[in-house]
Design a protein around this nucleic acid. Sequence first.
DNA 1: CCGAGATATCGATGATTGTCGATGTTCAGT
DNA 2: ACTGAACATCGACAATCATCGATATCTCGG
Lengths: 126, 126
Amino acid sequence: MDVNIDYHRYMPTALSLTDVSAAACCAPLAEAALERTEAETLAALLKGLADPARLQLLSIVAASEGQEACVCDLIEPIGLSQPTVSHHLKVLTEAGFLTRSKRGTWAYYRLVPEALSRMAELLQFP
Amino acid sequence: MDVNIDYHRYMPTALSLTDVSAAACCAPLAEAALERTEAETLAALLKGLADPARLQLLSIVAASEGQEACVCDLIEPIGLSQPTVSHHLKVLTEAGFLTRSKRGTWAYYRLVPEALSRMAELLQFP
DNA sequence: CCGAGATATCGATGATTGTCGATGTTCAGT
DNA sequence: ACTGAACATCGACAATCATCGATATCTCGG
């Protein structure tokens, strides 16, 4: 919709302990038994995904132009209150599935496709 | 002027754990936006996976001979009580990730590899 | 048929989570 | 500066969940 968008903005990524990239070391799940710590990391990521609203949010963002969407366009289709949507977006961002960038009063969330790819990869048992 | 946002109430859906096969119809996640029902189904599956103990259980079973293991061999490595392990195995089974077969007094749980493959597939965004 | 072992179920409890309204913060116009 | 809009954060509440001990169920061997 808005054409002159400044894409050169610096995007702050708030990486928490349970970010997808933190699991980058893990081998596919069951070559050997998972250690407790690895299991906890992976479980935290899955937990971030295991909510209908968050899956819908991811889905909408992924289907949007440039795999990016404004919060204002997310609230209505989800059908939850604005604080709740904001909360879910935060969870997804902290888990590394989305990144946030603010332009004006609007906040845009963009998909991190590698995050989902990595999740899928980690779920593959040999 | 006035805030005419239509806040929807949260509906406590007591959805029982859905089997992976029930999601067999769903297309990869984000070609179009996920419907509420699909999101709930997928979320239920992810929730079944989103626990460290359950991931470890899956991992051990997957690494066992014939991708099958006896409960008696699962309790000690997990480090939780027998009822708790039994509970987790039930969750995994109801979600379709394991199948159960009893031989004598022992219960054997076997991996359903397609279940995990399908999960991974559903997580792929184009 | 009785006792022992393996596992499932039950009931309780503390922790986590999803949700909301109220409030705080930041930004763009006027 | 003031106002309104967009979004985040806070505090509270109800629902769900992971966990355990106690107990029930099932199966085998004696």
